[in-house]
Design a binder for these strands. Structure first.
Lengths: 216, 216
DNA sequence: ACCTGAACACCGTTCAAGT
DNA sequence: ACCTGAACACCGTTCAAGT
């Protein structure tokens, strides 16, 4: 009796879905071909019948996160839709904290291309010049990615997880108030602060700046 | 005769320096404890007499890059110095393309803290409100990091390296002009474009936006 | 105090063999 | 066509032994 029951048939889609589960629950470092196979109820080598290698797996996982980004097109004007997509992208990235560092390591796949195409379309439909639309695409993209990336690192280091919070605490105590007053104040602002409003503040700053530059 | 000649004595400083050499020349993936030991002329295990583990090594390497960022304070006004530091930071990151993805994975070390302290000091000395100074720190930081990160990925994927350029070429050909006109145009803009002027354009957009928001 | 040989517990991946 | 046992070539790291 070789056939194990209670296991779904193996295909790319379910492999990627389980891989995302592991990464969400236990972090990317816990995602190995072996741990993935174990969760699926198959042997490691079976995975290679459906994906070329781990790099392809990760690329597929990232594209699945990209697919969660809302394609917005109902706004009163194109830049409002750009704004909504930026917020939706941040939400998707926060849902999958392992994704930001891997976001653009491979060439974009289907969902990523779709998101990119739509975002560029919105910018082209706006009042922005082609040149500013190009810069705007990257400015928005980088802001979302950079902000989320740093926010997640900060949350990991400072958040309520007692173990790492202690590490940060000893770090903070290592800073002398006379030598590093601003750094100390900055970290305290973080512990008290509301990050998501700060995200939108800078996002609007960028969008407004683009429009202003365009109208000059 | 156990003593090998022609090798510098082992210490943290030279270990980190050689590690950076390997990463610069052959990429981070080529940096293993074994390859590092080989370059130093020692055995692998000797490294552990000077550094705790590979994580600490990488953290030390990143701090060395942070030390290359110019601490600017001669400008006509504080925000000009902020601008200069942002440009200097980008230059340091471009010099060490492996650094951006690792930039804030660990708690900041001495040089990183110094850079942070000075940057925050400049923002505090500017006309910006404490709140906007806080947001400004992250906006500038994220822009530099995000922009450099995406620029480096793009360069790797699109640059003159024939092998990967071909990969991008087939990717481009996979996009149909009727379905993805904007994406195709965007990539062509990249191949032709001047990235470093775009970096400064968005940087100024952010700095001007902060001042404007502050003066409202 | 610093260096190192041997070994351990992992990785991703290949290949030939099974059904 | 898909699954898998055994094996390979790597990792980072530990520990006891050397000097």
């Amino acid at each position: 009796m070789n056939i194990k029951t209670n296991r779904s048939p193996l295909d790319r889609e379910t492999i990627v879905a389980r891989a995302i589960e592991i990464a969400d629950e236990e972090g990317v470092t816990a995602l190995t071909m072996r741990s993935l196979a174990r969760r699926l109820g198959y042997e490691v080598m079976s995975l290679y019948n459906h994906i070329a290698n781990k790099g392809e797996l990760i690329s597929l996982m990232v594209d699945e996160v990209a697919a969660e980004v809302e394609i917005s097109s109902q706004g009163p004007d194109p830049l409002t839709d750009v704004r909504r997509m930026a917020i939706s992208m941040r939400e998707a990235l926060v849902r999958h904290p392992w994704a930001p560092p891997l976001w653009q390591r491979e060439l974009p796949r289907a969902a990523q291309v779709e998101r990119m195409e739509h975002l560029l379309g919105l910018l082209a439909a706006s009042t922005l010049s082609p040149d500013l639309a190009h810069h705007g695409f990257h400015a928005v993209n980088n802001h979302v990615l950079g902000y989320t990336l740093q926010e997640l690192e900060m949350t990991i280091a400072i958040g309520t997880e007692s173990e790492l919070a202690a590490k940060t605490q000893t770090f903070l105590e290592g800073l002398s108030p006379e030598d590093h007053p601003h750094a100390i104040a900055h970290i305290h602002q973080h512990i008290a602060g509301d990050t998501s409003s700060s995200f939108e503040l800078v996002l609007d700053l960028i969008l407004d700046g683009l429009v202003r530059l365009n109208d000059e």
